[in-house]
Design a binder for these strands. Structure first.
Lengths: 207, 207
DNA sequence: ATTGTATTTAATAAGTCTATTAATTAGCTG
DNA sequence: CAGCTAATTAATAGACTTATTAAATACAAT
């Protein structure tokens, strides 16, 4: 085992495979390469996960679920203003993406490849979003009634936020290349865009 | 030749390959499959383009260049208000993406795969963006000075627009799956988001 | 030490993929 | 029609892929 192991080999395979899938996508990652990176025999990958598809799904579903759990995690924000709540939601969504910058592209790709996959995901997190969304919507309606927010659909707010945050990370390699940012500059831009994305959403809902 | 041809076989190969690359990406599209779809022998694909990479680059660069030309196309908007200009730029960018809904994902993927590619693209359109950007910036500064727009960087405006529009199409398959839109509904959402994206940008720059 | 189970490896089948080569066909020109 | 070039095909080399199988090794418990 070349990778430092407190982990079992099985876990190491998962870790390595995740990295490679994120880096190069499903099609361009071979079980041979996974095994080579782990430092084990290629058959071992199939011994633990039988098929490459299986291995991928194990990682993918876990990752996706984890991601949504973070998003829908109940945060202690009861006594904050609506604006402050929105700010925090945008920021924590952004921060979650920053920790998983390559996930959105992988998800976008693989959901195109396997539209069925999305159904199994949907079923795994059925009640959460609806419940939360309607709770948030109730609060939004109060704000609108009080004239602190313009009349706007909750779904549009969410889409604006998600699109802006996700788009930011998907486009990062392209922006970096086209505008020839150094890694340093790229980091600064990300930090800067975090606040701008908050502004985008806040100004979007302002009366 | 099974595909109806007014086109030469070479052109047909280009057309078919473009479709398949957009659909399934570079790695998951084989020259065998291209040939099968075209209805010709697999060697013919290599006869015309020698390598798959070559074929891809031919299509990719042409497509990318074309796309940027549309974006930086001079439009006749001299006697419009700044706000109206912004609206039209956002809308025409959105419309261009709507005509090429799968291009952003492909570009995102392949620029990760080949960071060098981006440099050759950069060189192909060197003067345009800088020139246009500084022209737009001059106008922006006037608007800011006149108090019709808040103090904001041109780059942030552009990034907000591009991110919002591109993100919209990259996330469409995911949104459609998660929220179980019909094709009909998806179309309506796109039409709706077109206007919302305009609002996002306009409200983002409002004083 | 032996038995049993889990882990790991070597070997390999069966298939696909890219790319090349040599041969065949089509289409045009003189 | 002969001759030339371009288009097209069949065949195949060679590399790489996924997945399986049977054998070898490691490790624990009896």
């Amino acid at each position: 085992m070349s990778i430092k192991s407190e982990q079992t080999t099985e876990q190491t395979i998962l870790t390595v495979a995740e990295q490679l899938f994120l880096e190069k996508g499903f099609a361009s990652t071979s079980t041979t390469q996974i095994a080579k990176t782990v430092g084990c025999n290629q058959a071992l990958v199939h011994y633990y996960f039988r098929t490459k598809e299986n291995l991928f799904n194990t990682i993918f579903e876990q990752k996706f679920k984890n991601f949504f759990e973070h998003i829908f995690e109940k945060k202690n924000m009861e006594n904050l203003s609506f604006e402050e709540k929105v700010r925090r939601v945008v920021e924590s969504h952004f921060d979650l993406l920053r920790q998983n910058p390559k996930l959105p592209l992988l998800v976008s790709n693989e959901l195109v490849r396997l539209p069925e996959q999305i159904q199994s995901i949907r079923e795994n997190l059925q009640p959460m979003p609806q419940e939360l969304l309607s709770h948030m919507n109730a609060e939004l309606q109060k704000e609108i009634a009080a004239g602190r927010v313009r009349k706007v659909d909750m779904l549009d707010i969410v889409m604006t936020m998600v699109t802006q945050n996700v788009g930011c990370f998907i486009m990062l390699p392209m922006s970096t290349g086209l505008l020839q940012w150094t890694e340093e500059q790229a980091k600064e831009v990300i930090e800067h865009r975090r606040e701008e994305n908050v502004q985008v959403v806040l100004r979007y809902i302002r009366p």
